[in-house]
Design a protein around this nucleic acid. Structure first.
Lengths: 344, 344
DNA sequence: CTGAAAGCGCTAACAT
DNA sequence: ATGTTAGCGCTTTCAG
């Protein structure tokens, strides 16, 4: 219970009658130190309960061994998957992670960026908030030469490295799938179209309609905040349309689940009356009824790839500046909620 | 793009022809510094883009302003809620958070503890892994006077502060509710009974049976790992029992959802044939059909309370040693999956 | 292969 | 109200 004094390399050096320089080198496993002295030092360090003082080291070396992770929220399956992937890679590489989430607020995002900047992270992995308007707060980092990797919700085409899925292709495929099931009035439930992810899926949706010779009707596009409530509201809106759509592409599984539940409460059949395709491949998708057709969105891989790119850059193994975009595999997972045609 | 030299308090002091001590004091908003000099200093700091060097400060002050968060996994609703609560409080208090998760492995838990110990966290918030056998790795902290707060899965009665819900009561109420619905053969699906949370719910289950004059049958207790697959396997096992149970208390909503789905696939009615009560109040509970009766498990509050206790201790506002246990409110949420009696 | 010593940027005791 | 200075523990250059 008594708090003992912290052991330093000076203590070790004194006790062994050698210099701190040698101890320091030995602790770094510098090959220049003889095996014999190393062994002595390791043993004593262990015995005395020596711990490296990372602050002294950081102060001296001018690196923090810390990576910042900025995300819009932390309460979704997807966000947590990414975090998991990032955490895995950074931990293995010996970096600490500082997590900052903005609750989808631009102001908080800026504040978080400032904080991480002041904390002097060695690198940054970031996804944008719902309503982020400009990107000045990321310039702080690039101005100091701190590398930034964006994932998922990204600012594209500014010389940044981004890690994404092909949202356009996914939107296109989801819609084409619904068309293939015989749907002719396909609605789209999405979120802020200023964000690349939603904009791209939306483009895919439109192009799939166009390519199938179906008219585009902007009244069939519902924009909301992807809350559970948005699913309920959208369902009600759609049931009041004339004609009622026979297919819906929703950019979020949770919203889709609430949507389907609401339809069922109104005795509307899924997929019979309305076929539904979600997005994200959340675990909820195969637990609800009917099971949900969705787009696989591999958060863990995304996190791993983003973190790996950043760390390789920091360690000098590769240069992030050379990488503009990394596209992660994704694809449609067909389940019951969209299968109007039973010839499966 | 050019990387400029970092500005220090010496630069500011030089430029203003004052001493670094004054600059340091001003930056801490020490009242002893005159308003006028403070203003000058603030302005110049802003102008020159000064950032505090936290490493120098930590080195000097011998505090890290960092809190460790140890958890068994990061992929559940509950875990993320706790993290959210902890993060909120620690961020507001100006502490960094280092997150370490053990994937339910004792070995990794020990490794994580070692890492956090070496990183010299000022305090620790921890939940135990599935198979943690002993607690020596927490002694490192107490030996150095680093405060530890346990939550949820805890080691009780060792002078530690723990934050929990009343698992016994919840288990009791869940079971009594099923009994009240007319169930007479009630199964229990749970996990490692060495962990307090499951052990306590199990005790509640047994006592509720006993108090209702129902026999306890250990064959009705299924222990698994709370994976989705565990729900499927348990359902199959239960359907093979003779007689088939008419009620099941499952200590996890996700497992319960998979369980119910499996029952439905076997054309077994819920709650008609088998009434089900889950645990955790995950969002999935009200999206599946029938909606799931469950026990509310307020992760965010738990995280907030744990973090607040720790930080108040660190700041000297209160003494954690005086607090043995904090019990967070929890309670049954009755939905359709358990309502055999329709007189709702 | 090892040692001496400077210095990373900050805080706080002591002095004025 | 402000200044001087030692020292937190480490890394690294330079010297041997």
């Amino acid at each position: 219970m008594s708090v003992k004094k912290e052991v330093t390399i000076y203590d070790l050096a004194d006790e062994l009658n050698i210099s701190v320089a040698t101890v320091s080198r030995a602790l770094k496993d510098d090959p220049v130190v003889s095996k014999k002295t190393k062994k002595k030092i390791y043993e004593l360090a262990e015995k005395r309960g020596y711990r490296t003082n990372y602050f002294a080291r950081s102060l001296r070396k001018q690196v923090t061994n810390t990576i910042g992770f900025m995300i819009h929220e932390l309460n979704s399956n997807f966000a947590n998957s990414v975090l998991l992937g990032v955490e895995k890679v950074t931990t293995e590489a010996g970096y600490d992670l500082i997590i900052a989430h903005s609750s989808e607020s631009y102001e908080k995002e800026v504040a978080n960026a400032k904080n991480l900047f002041n904390k002097r992270v060695d690198g940054l992995i970031a996804a944008l908030s719902f309503d982020t308007k400009n990107y000045d707060h990321f310039k702080w980092f690039s101005d100091k030469g701190v590398p930034v990797v964006f994932f998922d919700r990204v600012e594209q085409g500014n010389g940044n490295t981004v890690v994404v899925i092909d949202n356009y292709k996914c939107g296109y495929e989801a819609t084409r799938h619904l068309i293939g099931q015989g749907c002719r009035h396909i609605a789209h439930v999405s979120s802020n179209l200023a964000r690349n992810v939603y904009a791209d899926r939306y483009r895919g949706y439109r192009d799939a309609l166009r390519d199938a010779g179906l008219p585009f009707d902007e009244n069939l596009v519902l924009i909301d905040n992807l809350s559970e409530n948005a699913g309920i509201v959208s369902a009600k809106k759609i049931l009041e349309m004339n004609p009622v759509p026979d297919g819906v592409f929703i950019t979020n599984d949770f919203v889709a689940a609430a949507f389907i539940k609401t339809l069922k409460e109104h005795n509307v059949g899924v997929p019979g009356d309305i076929a539904v395709v979600g997005f994200n491949n959340d675990a909820i998708g195969h637990l609800i009824e009917p099971s949900l057709t969705t787009v696989n969105y591999p958060g863990i891989e995304m996190g791993e790839v983003a973190a790996r790119a950043l760390i390789n850059h920091l360690k000098g193994t590769s240069d992030i500046k050379q990488i503009d975009t990394v596209i992660i595999n994704s694809g449609l997972i067909i389940r019951q909620s969209s299968l109007k045609r039973t010839e499966l």
